[in-house]
Simulated assay, not measured.
Amino acid sequence: MDQTQPPANLTDVLQRLRENTRGQDEISVGDLLSAVGQRSFGPVVLIAGLITIAPLIGDIPGVPTLLGLVVLLTLGQLLFQRQSVWIPNKLSNRRVARETLIKGLDWMQKPACFVDRWTRPRLTWLVRGPGQYLMAVICMLVAAAMPAMEVVPFSANGGALALMVFGMAMVVEDGVLALLGMAITGGTLWAVMIGLMG
Rank of each mutant, 00 (worst) to 15 (best):
M1H: 14
P6Y: 13
P7T: 07
L10R: 15
R18S: 01
N20W: 07
T21W: 11
R22Y: 02
D25Y: 09
E26P: 00
E26Q: 02
G30E: 06
S40I: 07
S40A: 04
G42C: 12
V44Y: 06
I47K: 02
T52I: 09
V63L: 06
P64E: 15
L66A: 08
L67M: 14
V70D: 09
V71R: 10
L72E: 11
Q77K: 10
L78W: 03
Q83E: 01
L91Y: 05
S92A: 15
S92N: 10
R95A: 05
R95P: 01
A97T: 03
K103I: 00
K103P: 00
L105D: 01
D106S: 14
P111V: 05
A112V: 11
V115E: 13
V115P: 00
D116C: 01
R117V: 05
R117C: 10
W118H: 08
R120T: 12
R122Y: 04
V127H: 14
V127D: 08
R128D: 09
R128F: 03
G129D: 14
P130Q: 10
P130S: 14
Q132H: 11
L134I: 12
L134Q: 12
M135W: 09
I138C: 12
I138Q: 12
V142N: 13
V142R: 11
P147E: 11
A156E: 07
A162Y: 09
V165E: 09
F166Y: 02
V171I: 04
E173C: 14
L177N: 02
A178C: 08
G181T: 10
I184G: 06
A191N: 07
G195K: 14
L196N: 08
G198A: 07
